[in-house]
Design a protein around this nucleic acid. Structure first.
Lengths: 130, 130
DNA sequence: CGCATAGTTAAGCATGTGCTTGAGTATGTA
DNA sequence: TACATACTCAAGCACATGCTTAACTATGCG
């Protein structure tokens, strides 16, 4: 495996900025021009353009020049791929914790064999959270 | 609204690094120590510790010192909150595009009134993708 | 044409990020 | 006790990021 995933790098990086998330939020309601995206952000238009470039490079946004203004719209596929990376990990974590919960309920009061033990749910720890 | 969300900032920022995603992936299969997390990464232990701190600050990972080693585990709640931000936007986008698709199918061949038009799906554009 | 609008591009700057090395601190083990 | 293990902390450094201003380049409108 050793997942090479520059897409996910750029995707999560793009979503890590509050201004860019704000733009994505706006675009999820429909297409908008660059300056419309920038209006609620109190930064220069040049800065807005740079954010749009980051969003475009990440695949989250597609743009198209029409006349003198550039219209931006979301590509839901990019959102889906970030989403499914998270969903897969979360699902695996939750399934594992469910199994652990059942196991602990079943063997309540018995000594812990220690093979899938989740720290913080076990009995006794030497020095918690230092 | 004007969503203040430093959690999401830190969450997506944490996920934007391939090494840290690798750690999350490992932790989704069960708890691990700091040096176990670092083993597949070919960086110094000090660097691994710094990544773990970022993950912990984001809420994705919880740690606990036990003896001389620190055990890390995932907090699925943090994964869920990043996930649901994305899911909400994606859902909105897809619902909107579905409505648009229906509308276009219904009014095929007729002039475009232009209120929800998605660029790239419309008829004619002046200078595409310059 | 003349002027405003909507970007675009480049340079520069402050701050953040990811990494290293080096020196320390506990903790387990023979 | 001596040594290894597993971090921990602090500098320091190269490069990335987010922003600015200033100087363009189209387009659209009266």
């Amino acid at each position: 495996m050793l997942n090479y995933a520059p897409d996910l790098d750029r995707l999560f990086q793009a979503l890590a900025d509050p201004g860019r998330r704000h733009m994505v939020e706006r675009l999820s309601r429909g297409p908008a021009t660059v300056s419309e995206l920038g209006k609620p952000l109190a930064i220069s238009l040049a800065a807005v353009v740079q954010h749009v470039q980051v969003l475009e490079a990440s695949g989250l946004v597609r743009t198209q020049k029409s006349g003198r203004s550039r219209t931006c719209s979301i590509d839901p596929a990019a959102l889906r791929s970030a989403e499914s990376w998270i969903t897969e990990r979360r699902t695996m974590v939750e399934r594992r914790l469910d199994r652990l919960g059942e196991y602990l309920a079943q063997t309540a009061g018995q000594p812990d064999p220690g093979w899938v033990t989740e720290p913080g749910q076990t009995t006794s720890q030497s020095k918690e959270e230092q």
